[in-house]
Design a protein around this nucleic acid. Sequence first.
DNA 1: AGGCTGCCTGCAATCGGTTGCGTTAGGGTG
DNA 2: CACCCTAACGCAACCGATTGCAGGCAGCCT
Lengths: 326, 326
Amino acid sequence: MTVTIRDVARASGVHVSTVSRTFSAPHMVNAATRTRVLTVAEELGYRPNRAARALTTGRTHNLGLIVADIANPFFPPLIKAAHAAARQRDYHLFVADTDEEPAAEEELIQAFSKQVDGVVLCSPRSSNKALERLAQRVPFVVINRRLRGAATVLMDVGHGARLAVEHLAGLGHRRVALVSGPAGSWTSAEIRAAAEQVPGIDLAVIGPNAPTERGGFAAAGRVRESGVTGVLAYNDLVAIGLIEGLGDLGLSVPRDVSVVGIDDIVPGRLNRPKLTTVAMPTAAAGRLAVDLLIQEVTATTSLETRLVIRDSTAAPRQRGSCNRLY
Amino acid sequence: MTVTIRDVARASGVHVSTVSRTFSAPHMVNAATRTRVLTVAEELGYRPNRAARALTTGRTHNLGLIVADIANPFFPPLIKAAHAAARQRDYHLFVADTDEEPAAEEELIQAFSKQVDGVVLCSPRSSNKALERLAQRVPFVVINRRLRGAATVLMDVGHGARLAVEHLAGLGHRRVALVSGPAGSWTSAEIRAAAEQVPGIDLAVIGPNAPTERGGFAAAGRVRESGVTGVLAYNDLVAIGLIEGLGDLGLSVPRDVSVVGIDDIVPGRLNRPKLTTVAMPTAAAGRLAVDLLIQEVTATTSLETRLVIRDSTAAPRQRGSCNRLY
DNA sequence: AGGCTGCCTGCAATCGGTTGCGTTAGGGTG
DNA sequence: CACCCTAACGCAACCGATTGCAGGCAGCCT
């Protein structure tokens, strides 16, 4: 059936331990023996069983990646990058989806624990207490959240938000709305704190909103009433929904209102108008998280974000024509 | 460190085999003993080591999922559904990305083989020969490709393409272009064959094209020259790119040209105009593939596709005003 | 009382590899 | 020539769990 180390040993006339060593400690075996074992193994189609190896070494060469929602366009680039980084070091990647449920998150970490060398947790929703408890069962690195004692990869969304508002200010906008995300979100707080620091801007906060296209769509009315000329949305989906909602109210983007998103997801790039947005380095975050995990270093990293200026922002209309809208 | 079956055995005063049986064959152990073992296990925080279990049982309770490109919006819903189905039956899912390279595909299957009970191959690019050889190492089910001897899940894109062209015909279009995909693609051939069967339609084939937004954008000129009033695009990305390209040429969708996509990916839903498209049941395919794998049934299934009519299709303009464009 | 049956449980081999330790052979040294 | 050293390999225990087999015990029948 499946060819084991013993088959190779028999066929090449050496002990199993020698075969084992030719794979895991080649320098300990005579060159001639090694090549013989190697060719026999090749002929038989032998491949070491990683699960069996893990039993004694304690290292599985597997990693887990847990995200809130695989189908959310924010995550796939991160998953892809994490996979590539893992693959490069000959690790395999379990991917799991919590459907935004903290309970599923904890359950998954538990279930993974024996089968992986570590897990990458993306924007975890569980409580600090639960996470600290779980950290004792399996090493992990957290993306997009601060957590004592765990390696952390942050994306500096605050800085990006600031750039976005400054960009609006630079275009001449004075009254800007922040269409915020869910209450209690770490990201939401970061964005708000940064946006409020930009001088010369009169900031209206509209929210909380669902972090989805529908959330943005639903906020259009309040944005209009607020009389702002520029908007920073919680994320690109919200921005896209908002643009559509504004369109239904007769407001055109960027002519009547400028809109900046956050994340730089694919649908935003394909949107019309193409979305000006704060690019989150999700690929870099995924890659880095995997590297930290494999190298077992506990560090806190903050990744740069940058502003990508496309077509959804422009200078505000003249005061006269602007007023006409209200 | 990590609590094993032996720890539980010692703490509850029974032999390891009894502990093992309370978990894997509960009916074989006395109720009183069972509850005692269970409570002790709970207290100690014992969780069976699946890798160790796999060694004797031969079943890992892991599945592999290999796709061409995780970041391609077509795949995430499929991955999510596959994960959910696996999770429901207490399986874990390895996810891998081949970056469209057949060699990576074969390598990944090999690497997975010892560690999974089966793998789901999505639109595999490898040769039939290679796949048939690999099928002997590990069971797999193939999505979106016919393969002798392997379980297969097909999405009936031909039927969908036919519905799309019939939809255009029903709106009054007579001259329709098929903006095709890469040469040699199974899907591309299916679409073309089906589209050609619709009576009363004069079909122009434009292509091959890259299956991307850029491919669609680049095809806009030829679409215009062909003088068609309706287009069926190879997929939604091509459709989105095409719409943008047509816009740059002064042609508006759906006023001047109707465009139908295929796949029903998120960016198409968010696009403006919202894309009329052939919905591929990717979630159902992912779910089904996993179920087939777990139940070890070899079957060929063809999933229904359906047409989702949105805003990118309309009746063609009157002949006079239409001619004005050329 | 003796024998039979069936339920629980223990024993030990096994899955595929890894690894500390012991053995052997060969070479170098005094 | 005796001695030591080292390189190369074999031996066997072990990782954490499963499972066929056998033994103990209670209950039932004759």
